[in-house]
Structure formats: structure tokens, C-alpha cells
């Protein structure tokens, strides 16, 4: 049977190094299959996260040959197997063990963003009316599986370690999804600017590039948010006019 070498990062918070493992390669295999095979046969204690194995839960994010990927959606037939395939944990988050990182920061960040505050119901039975075209954009953001690959690749977090000042593309998209939600009456723009550091994003679009759900994070979430902030914060005249003449 055909085999390939997988160069996997092994180690814990104290120290780590690459180990080479040989795995058998069968038709249709993905990187996660190779990891599972190695785990079952050679290294029972090889740590990795995974759940659905179908690209829907976003648990198995890692860096394969240096690229942030979901291991379950990375086909071996799409990567060169004549050289070792490197598999490493995400770099933006503190390392725990092998391929597992401490992503708890993401969960803390989300808690800081105000949840949806719906407007009064449209119908006497307590329900709302929304047109499909008005929710298409929000539905795009809601496809997010929270794999945090966009956070991993974002240089503001990855290189500059601005975790305390910048919430990263995932949560800017989450915030945009709330701001653009047809039912929402909240306003998170000031927080986006002051507390969540949207200004740090210089739209290099790396997040969009790695998103496995193909969400246009930069174009559809971050840039419109920046524009709204400009309108709201840097255009006092416009702001005044809007106050005097509320939306029809």
C-alpha cells in the first residue's frame, strides 16, 4: 500500500518537536484520517481536536504544510506526498499539547459583545416579518463554524499579539452579523472602535482567504463596519442630520 510521511508537532507547554510518522494512504483520505490512523496504531496519546469530520463543527483546525486548514477537509490527493506533510497547531493561541491549543480567549471575547436586542414583534402573534433578501447577508456570517482559522492567520493577533485590544476577524464578523440583523436594535459601533479595535484591521484579507466556509469576512463584514463607524463617528454633520431626519 502507498504510504506517506507526516511530520507532526508533538509536545506540551514545556517543549516540543516534530516527529515523523508513516501512514498508509487510501483513496479519498483527508489529513484527519492520517492523524487518526497514527493515533490508533502508533501514538494513542497524540492530542488533536475533532468532532464531525465533515467540515461543519470547526474543531480540527491546524496548520498543514504551513497553511491554516481544517484537517477533515484537506484531501491528501491535493497535497504533495513525495515529501513529509507537516501538521502543526495554530500559532495564534497558547499551545497546550500536540495539535491542541488553548482557544478559550475566543469564548471570553464573544461574551463581551452585546447579544441581539430584537425590535418589537411585527405581528400580534409575537412573530416578525423579514424578507429573504434582507437576511442573505446575515446568513452568510452565520455560516461561521468557529474554527478560528481566521483568527489564526490574522497578523494583528498572530504576529502582534494584540489579543487584549483586538477581537479578530471572527468576532468582527459576529458583530457585523448582529449589526446587520434586521431585528436588532442595539448599537455596537462605538464598542467596535474603542473596545474591540477594529482600526487594527488593515484589510489584508488573509482571514477571507483561509475561511473554510468562504465567508467574505473583509469585504462583507469588516469594511462595511468600518464605513458605518466613519459615518457615525467621523461625520458629525451627517450624524446630526440623521438624528433630525430619522430613517423612513
Amino acid at each position: 500500500m502507498k504510504t506517506a510521511t507526516f511530520r507532526i508537532w508533538r509536545g506540551d507547554v514545556r517543549a516540543g518537536q516534530f516527529h515523523d510518522y508513516t501512514a498508509e494512504v487510501a483513496e479519498g483520505m483527508v489529513v484527519l484520517d492520517a492523524i487518526h490512523q497514527i493515533q490508533a496504531k502508533q501514538a494513542n496519546d497524540l492530542a488533536c481536536r475533532w468532532n464531525c469530520k465533515a467540515g461543519k463543527c470547526g474543531s480540527c483546525a491546524a496548520e498543514v504544510n504551513g497553511l491554516p486548514r481544517l484537517m477533515c477537509m484537506t484531501r491528501l490527493s491535493d497535497i504533495p506526498l513525495d515529501q513529509p506533510v507537516t501538521v502543526e497547531p495554530m500559532k495564534t493561541f497558547p499551545h497546550l499539547k500536540d495539535l491542541v491549543t488553548d482557544v478559550s480567549w475566543n469564548f471570553r471575547v464573544k461574551k463581551k459583545i452585546h447579544k441581539l436586542t430584537p425590535r418589537m414583534a411585527d405581528a400580534p402573534d409575537g412573530t416578525w416579518r423579514m424578507a429573504q433578501q434582507d437576511i442573505d447577508r446575515v446568513q452568510e456570517f452565520r455560516k461561521c463554524i468557529e474554527c478560528f482559522l481566521c483568527q489564526d492567520v490574522c497578523h494583528v493577533l498572530r504576529e502582534h499579539r494584540k489579543h487584549e485590544e483586538f477581537i479578530g476577524p471572527r468576532f468582527l464578523a459576529h458583530l457585523a452579523g448582529l449589526e446587520m440583523h434586521p431585528l436588532d436594535t442595539g448599537n455596537r459601533l462605538e464598542a467596535a472602535k474603542k473596545e474591540f479595535g477594529i482600526g487594527y484591521c488593515n484589510i489584508t484579507k488573509c482571514c477571507t482567504y483561509v475561511c473554510p466556509e468562504e465567508i467574505k469576512i473583509t469585504d462583507n463584514a469588516i469594511i462595511p463596519l468600518k464605513e458605518r463607524i466613519v459615518d457615525e463617528v467621523y461625520d458629525p454633520l451627517g450624524k446630526l442630520l440623521r438624528r433630525l431626519r430619522p430613517k423612513a
Binding site: K115, L116, P118, G126, T127, W128, R129, M130, A131, Q132, I135, V138, Q139, R142, L178, H181, L183
Partner: peptide, 19 residues
């Protein structure tokens, strides 16, 4: 189901804007 909508779920819509 309706309660989920109040919590932010965005279901596909009918032509008249309902779930």
C-alpha cells in the same frame, strides 16, 4: 422555534417574510 428567532436565529423565509 419562534423563541429561537427572538434570540437571533435567522431562518429561511417565505415570500411574505415568515419562517
Amino acid at each position: 422555534v419562534r423563541e429561537l428567532e427572538a434570540w437571533g436565529a435567522v431562518f429561511d423565509r417565505t415570500k411574505d417574510g415568515r419562517i
